[in-house]
C-alpha cells in the first residue's frame, strides 16, 4: 500500500461542502460548482470526481469504473464500496468513454430512485455556451459547454429521458469543477 494518499482532511466538513456542491449542481442543472478540494490523487482521478465519491459512496453503494488499479485502490480504501458490474452499480465512474446510458441501472416505475448516478470525467466545462438546457431547476434556460462529452450523448440522453421517472443522473467533473444533469433536464445541441 505504498503511496496511498489521504482522503478529506476534515471528513465531516469537506464531505458536507462537496455534497452541497453536488446538491446545488443537481438543483440547477448546467450551473458549474466548485468542490474546492485539494487532494493528492492517483491518476486519472480529478479533484471533483474524488470529492463527489468520497462524499457520497460507501459500503452501501455498488461501484463500477474504468479508472484503473491505482484509482480503484485509492477509492476503495477511502470509501469501501463493493465493485459490481456497471449494470448494477449505484455509482458508475467513467474517465474514458462511459457505458451506454441504457445499459445502466434505471430504477423501476415504483422505485425510480434505485438508479445509477454516472460520474463522467470530462476535459472542461463552461457556462453560457454550448448545450441549451431546460427543465426543473432552470428559470428559462441554462447553457453548458462540455469539452470531451461522450459521442452521441445528447441523442442517448433524449432517448433515456423518455423512460422518466426511471433514468440515470449524471455528474460531469472537470478538475475541481462539476455540473450535473438530473434525469429531468432536456438538452438541445447549441
Amino acid at each position: 500500500m505504498t503511496g496511498l494518499t489521504p482522503g478529506f482532511a476534515d471528513p465531516a466538513l469537506d464531505a458536507q461542502a462537496s455534497f452541497r456542491a453536488v446538491l446545488e449542481a443537481m438543483s440547477r442543472p448546467g450551473r458549474i460548482q466548485r468542490t474546492g478540494s485539494s487532494l493528492h490523487l492517483p491518476a486519472p482521478l480529478g479533484q471533483a470526481t474524488a470529492a463527489v465519491l468520497l462524499a457520497l459512496a460507501d459500503a452501501d453503494t455498488g461501484f463500477a469504473h474504468d479508472a484503473g488499479a491505482a484509482a480503484e485502490a485509492w477509492l476503495r480504501f477511502h470509501c469501501g464500496m463493493p465493485l459490481v458490474p456497471a449494470g448494477e452499480a449505484t455509482f458508475v465512474l467513467a474517465t474514458g468513454a462511459p457505458p451506454a446510458l441504457a445499459t445502466l441501472c434505471q430504477g423501476s416505475e415504483e422505485e425510480p430512485q434505485a438508479s445509477a448516478t454516472l460520474v463522467i470525467q470530462v476535459a472542461g466545462l463552461a457556462e453560457d455556451e454550448g448545450w441549451h438546457l431546460t427543465g426543473p431547476g432552470i428559470e428559462t434556460e441554462h447553457r453548458l459547454r462540455v469539452d470531451g462529452a461522450p459521442e452521441g450523448f445528447v441523442a442517448a440522453w433524449a432517448a433515456n429521458r423518455a423512460g422518466f421517472p426511471c433514468g440515470v443522473d449524471v455528474v460531469l467533473c472537470a478538475g475541481d469543477r462539476l455540473a450535473a444533469l438530473p434525469r429531468t433536464v432536456m438538452i438541445a445541441e447549441g
Partner: peptide, 12 residues
C-alpha cells in the same frame, strides 16, 4: 451519506 444520496435522487 445515506440521506444525502436520497436528497440527490429526490431532486432528480
Amino acid at each position: 451519506r445515506m440521506i444525502r444520496r436520497a436528497l440527490l435522487k429526490a431532486v432528480a
